[in-house]
């Protein structure tokens, strides 16, 4: 691999990794609070990918307006999923397995819904950025990728500040260590959980839009969430920062390996590597060991 291609792939990898990081954090924040693996996040990503496509082709032509609208609608979808699917079983005090099964069911339901409605066709987003490439020296960088990288970084930074500084953010962190006690501190746990799902939905909204822009929309677009889940686990469940960093790393490793080994072999190498990594360090890069898992 010559140096040019290396840097090119590095930049591509970082921006793709930014999207993985968004998914890892969206997946991880629900795990932190409710301690179940939320596969429905992929379903929300898919809904948002279609929403973004619909808005961008039928309603408005502006990238920024449709991205913002998709993001906010993603938050709303996240809250709705919580209220319709997870709140009823939470109030009844069901075990975590119920949450896990419900979350997978939602993901499959969404996939089948879009398959039945629009078939397995590909829906490409409009080309927002006409002059697509930016020349820096001998490097050719995609403007779309740069924009994705910039927005992912901005969103993750904003989320970090929110969790560190605001009272709701601190309440989310408190609920992550103990879901039961905040209500005895006068905090409405249901509301905090709604906010958490809103945040996850917002992240899913951006992810869905970016994935739609990069790969065109199909019913299976939600399965990209697997990369985010891998990043969350490799980064360490319970650590959002770890998940974010692992997401970027995964994107970079993937891009570099594709350039070196090709797109067919790369996933095999990556998945095998992850299995070995988790054998050596089961808590991931920055996480602690959880005994409860579903």
């Amino acid at each position: 691999m010559n140096l040019n291609i290396f840097f090119q792939q590095l930049i591509n990898g970082i921006s793709l990794g930014g999207v993985y990081a968004l998914m890892a954090v969206g997946f991880g924040i629900i795990f932190n609070v409710l301690k179940f693996s939320n596969f429905s996040h992929g379903g929300v990503v898919a809904i948002c990918a279609y929403l973004g496509y619909f808005l961008a082709t039928r309603v408005a032509g502006s990238l920024w307006i449709t991205l913002l609208a998709t993001t906010l609608l993603g938050g709303v979808v996240g809250v709705l999923v919580e209220k319709l699917v997870f709140r009823p079983i939470r109030i009844k005090g069901r075990p975590l397995t119920y949450f896990f099964v419900n979350s997978i069911t939602v993901a499959m339901l969404v996939q089948q819904f879009f398959s039945a409605l629009w078939g397995y066709d590909y829906y490409p987003y409009p080309e927002f950025i006409k002059k697509t490439a930016l020349h820096i020296g001998r490097l050719v960088v995609s403007k779309t990728y740069l924009m994705m990288l910039f927005i992912s970084a901005l969103v993750l930074l904003g989320l970090t500040l929110f969790l560190r500084k605001t009272k709701q953010g601190i309440a989310i962190r408190a609920a992550s260590s103990d879901i039961w006690t905040p209500s005895l501190m006068g905090i409405n746990t249901d509301f905090i959980i709604s906010i958490t799902f809103f945040i996850a939905g917002v992240l899913a909204g951006i992810t869905g839009y970016f994935l739609g822009m990069t790969y065109t929309v199909t019913p299976f677009i939600g399965s990209f969430i697997l990369k985010g889940i891998i990043a969350a686990i490799v980064g360490g469940m319970g650590s959002l920062t770890g998940g974010g960093i692992a997401g970027v790393l995964l994107g970079v490793v993937e891009s570099l390996l594709i350039a070196e080994l090709g797109a067919a072999v790369t996933p095999i190498v990556i998945y095998a590597g992850i299995i070995i990594l988790l054998l050596v360090r089961p808590q991931g890069i920055a996480g602690k060991l959880y005994t409860i898992k579903a």
Partner: peptide
């Protein structure tokens, strides 16, 4: 049942959140 991912001061401030 303290919140172990918040520091001592944050633990107290969190309980005072209803004053905000």
């Amino acid at each position: 049942r303290l919140f172990h991912n918040l520091n001592v001061l944050e633990n107290l401030m969190m309980a005072g959140g209803t004053r905000l």
